[in-house]
Design a binder for these strands. Sequence first.
DNA 1: GAATCCAGCTAAAACGTTTTAGCCCGGAGG
DNA 2: CCTCCGGGCTAAAACGTTTTAGCTGGATTC
Lengths: 376, 376
Amino acid sequence: MAKKNSDSHVSSKVPAKAANLKALAEHLGLSQGTVSLVVNRSPSAASIPPETQARILEAAKKLNYRANFFAKSLRSQRSFTIGILHPDLSDYVALVMGGIEDQLLRQNYFYFAAGHRNQRELMEEYPRMMIERSVEGIIAIDSLLQHPLPVPVVSVSGHQKMAGVTNVVLDHRRAAELALGHLLETGHRDIAFMKGPSISSDTEHRWRSICEVARTLNIEMKPELCVEMESSPTYPDVGYPVAQQLLARNQHFTALFAYNDVAAIGAIRALFDAGRRVPDDVTVIGFDDIPSAAFQNPSLTTVRQPLRRMGEIAARTLLELIDEKKAQTGGGLSKDSREEISVEPELVVRESTTCRRAPFQAEEVAAITPSFSITT
Amino acid sequence: MAKKNSDSHVSSKVPAKAANLKALAEHLGLSQGTVSLVVNRSPSAASIPPETQARILEAAKKLNYRANFFAKSLRSQRSFTIGILHPDLSDYVALVMGGIEDQLLRQNYFYFAAGHRNQRELMEEYPRMMIERSVEGIIAIDSLLQHPLPVPVVSVSGHQKMAGVTNVVLDHRRAAELALGHLLETGHRDIAFMKGPSISSDTEHRWRSICEVARTLNIEMKPELCVEMESSPTYPDVGYPVAQQLLARNQHFTALFAYNDVAAIGAIRALFDAGRRVPDDVTVIGFDDIPSAAFQNPSLTTVRQPLRRMGEIAARTLLELIDEKKAQTGGGLSKDSREEISVEPELVVRESTTCRRAPFQAEEVAAITPSFSITT
DNA sequence: GAATCCAGCTAAAACGTTTTAGCCCGGAGG
DNA sequence: CCTCCGGGCTAAAACGTTTTAGCTGGATTC
């Protein structure tokens, strides 16, 4: 197989140092203003005859003209850049960011991302640095803002009541109904609950919803069957000790509703090491449906959050807010756009909650997560 | 628990619209130049008496002065921004990016990331867009550049011989020695090999190293035991059909060396569904050591790539290259900095290659991946 | 008393755009 | 012949910095 790289003429033409507007205008014998109008297809270019326009565009291409982004931004007060604040580049965050990236790039926006690792100073500093760099808006993933910001903010899985913040959240009530309903249907009554760490911005809402739905469904949440995580559930090891703690109490339970998939995976391991089989002895249900949930052994039953889509929605919403803000030139403030956008969860039943050990079906996974491509 | 949010004075002081240099200078009764020198702690500020400096700094703080980033960049021709080109925000990429982000932020750089999803046009377009936005360098993760770029480039897991590109790569020879050595020691001779997809920039080098080492170790690589992946191994489902294909050949093998962990996970599932137990019937070894590898069941033996560190190295190297470039003002080109930086793999033996079923030890995981924090 | 020097500033160019106000000129209308 | 109009452009301000060259006025030197 011949090497594909054009090794021979490696240092071939790095395209000539981009010309600036002045050079281009001089080359054309026109003023910078005229050229600018044309290359930007400004409405004011209407009075410039088509031949001239063609001439200009051609020369621009030939000289490889690229407007200097800083000069442009300085003048027009636009950066086409947003900031993404996140705790850490976990699976969860990566999925949401993927959705955001997708939407942004197709509208010629870029983003600055920064992970604060739940450190207070950084949670203050990074938004400030972003603002300093003139981002036009900020998306906070699983992060609480300390102060109101001078740009539109969309929060994913945050629940902030703050001026200028739009929250994209899961319908946690529905999520609890799905999960508890499933456990109930499969005959469980002695259910252990794992509450998230207080550091996670979703914890409180999710927990409250679970409590409410449990009451409605007449499920008792025994305090001795409730455990609480202490640190951020980024990697599965945090689920392990929590489950151990639960086991140490020596209380009877047949099901465990974990805070999320990562925690569930760690918990399953702890159960296993303690001699309890999943799902035979204990049924386990997770939350999120991260990609590897389908490929655990046993594969994980979970409440799916459409994370990628939440990212897309967040990005679209933010760009809308930005547009609105630019449009209303100090005029009466627009419809103060919804404070909350809710998305629906989905129950994905796999092996960790049934005793049936069905052969794995590639198609099934494909159906659950349509973005995957399966090669025959 | 009292609500923490200061719901009451929500629209509290959004810090006064940042003042610009002109306003600040006027307020002080000084010229913009003087103020600029002082706030930037420029060497030329030496002749300005300390009291004046103090006055200026105080006023700057009081008026909340922040230099406009665009004006600054325009003038000083620096953006403190780099671009990250990647195929997709997979686990793998997220780890590398985490390392990069860390290094960048602590040096006041930000990054633009873009995922080309292996689409040719995007692989051309995104670097161009980044250059247009004046990034000072680019890190390509698992991505091949089409053209030389006018800025320094560091490639992670790429193997490009191209002017101005520094490669951060794994020592694949050593990796192959570790993996094959382990298989040999545990008594395997009939080994199946899974080659990566041609789209992945590491595939060829890894494969070649495996072939070489196999020859050295006198391991026969039977063609009928070699399978090749077709699409990018981002999610585990791509490993599944490849393993099926292998099984369909009805050839005897006792070990499988998968292209990476994700593929291994899918393969294990396929083996399982075909009635073969891992590790009892087939030993499986992966590559990468993604976080969930330790939490599979069976947990995955794998050749660990220090992905986070590779990201850190890439970022540090790129920033060095940038500094060098800025320093040499067109002067004789510096030591044309190493074309390749190699990092060492590490063998992580877990359950998928031994028959012993040891209880899971949290400490063990901690030892392998020290960045995890275990809460008691 | 003139020349020199230095501390402590200032003026202004430059970075590369966008955009508004308006200039110039040829032809149509009166 | 004068006026008006509008097509086709230009001039220049503005965006907010950084940085160099140089100005001013008082103290020192000879």
